[in-house]
Every structure is written in structure tokens, then in C-alpha cells.
């Protein structure tokens, strides 16, 4: 190997090694989450009677601007059998705020009538039911001995955007 080529190779290798630590810095753009789904107390079991619901903000920041984001709105539902469920309150179709209907035991969207099964969070009627992804993102719930309900993480993608028309 010529001396010149060797020097070139060394410079190249050094450059590559020098740049390497900057590559993971691309994560700066990807993790733009202005918040993380931390464990947060929502309510107590006694706050909400069976077959009823509660709209809550998660994660709550205390900033009015941030907390008004529809993507932070969730629906805590106590089913008639006493079971607790919590879903994202944003309809999968056009991002309206959905609501629980105690008389029908399902979740309805006021905008285009998408209707979700309250037990599973799967849409069975309206535009959302015609999508490929028709399951509402669900909040992982934890209930401690005092009956306090905590939210701890979300399964699914909020604001995926509608599919089809």
C-alpha cells in the first residue's frame, strides 16, 4: 500500500468514527413528544357510578393551551358490570370528541355517527367501522387498594388519520 493511500484511508476512517456519535442525534427530530405517558391519577372508583363516564386529560400539564389538545382527551368508562375502561376520546375518522351513551352501552361520535363497542373499543357502525384500523387507542389502567384509578401508558396510535373517504 502506498503511503498516500494509507493517509487517505486513515483520514476517512477518522472522519467516519468522528461522525458516528452524531448519527443517533437524528432522534432529536423523531422523539418530538412534548410529553410522555407517565403514571397519573385520574379519579377514584367512588367518583364514577356504574354505567357512566368521565372525560379526562392525560397527561395533564396544567397549561391550558396544552391541555386543550383533543389528542390529550380520554374517556374513562365504568361499564354496567363495574369494569373500568379508558379510550382515546378522538374519533378515528375525523377527530371529533366521542362520548359514551349509557342507554345503548356504546360509544358514539356526534359528527358522523361512528359507533364503538364500549367493551372492546372497536367501531362497528359509521365511517370509522369501514377503516382498516378501527380500534380506539386504549389507556392502561391501574387501580390501587384505595380505589384510586391511575393511567399508565397508551396502546395504539392517536390521530392516525382517517382511511378511505
Amino acid at each position: 500500500m502506498k503511503r498516500r493511500d494509507f493517509v487517505k484511508g486513515i483520514v476517512l476512517a477518522s472522519g467516519i468514527v468522528g461522525i458516528t456519535p452524531f448519527i443517533p442525534a437524528g432522534k432529536f427530530l423523531v422523539t418530538t413528544f412534548s410529553f410522555k405517558y407517565v403514571r397519573q391519577k385520574i379519579a377514584n372508583v367512588n367518583d364514577i357510578p356504574p354505567n357512566n363516564r368521565l372525560l379526562f386529560t392525560y397527561p395533564k400539564t396544567g397549561d391550558i393551551e396544552q391541555d386543550s389538545d383533543p389528542f390529550r382527551k380520554f374517556l374513562l368508562i365504568r361499564l354496567p358490570n363495574g369494569e373500568f375502561k379508558a379510550y382515546s376520546a378522538v374519533c378515528l375518522h375525523l377527530w371529533c370528541i366521542i362520548d359514551y351513551k349509557p342507554d345503548k352501552v356504546d360509544i358514539e361520535c356526534p359528527c358522523h355517527g361512528s359507533t364503538y363497542n364500549a367493551q372492546t373499543g372497536v367501531a362497528f357502525k359509521g365511517p370509522a367501522s369501514k377503516q382498516f384500523n378501527k380500534t380506539l387507542p386504549e389507556v392502561k389502567l391501574e387501580i390501587d387498594d384505595n380505589g384510586d384509578i391511575y393511567a399508565n401508558g397508551v396502546i395504539g396510535v392517536i390521530g392516525y388519520g382517517r382511511e378511505g373517504a
Binding site: 427530530l29 422523539t31 413528544f33 412534548s34
Partner: peptide
């Protein structure tokens, strides 16, 4: 997540 971020404010 790069282009839209998370939530409306992003």
C-alpha cells in the same frame, strides 16, 4: 412523528 409531532399543538 418527525413531520407532525404529537398532538395538535405540535
Amino acid at each position: 412523528s418527525i413531520l407532525l409531532g404529537f398532538g395538535f399543538s405540535d
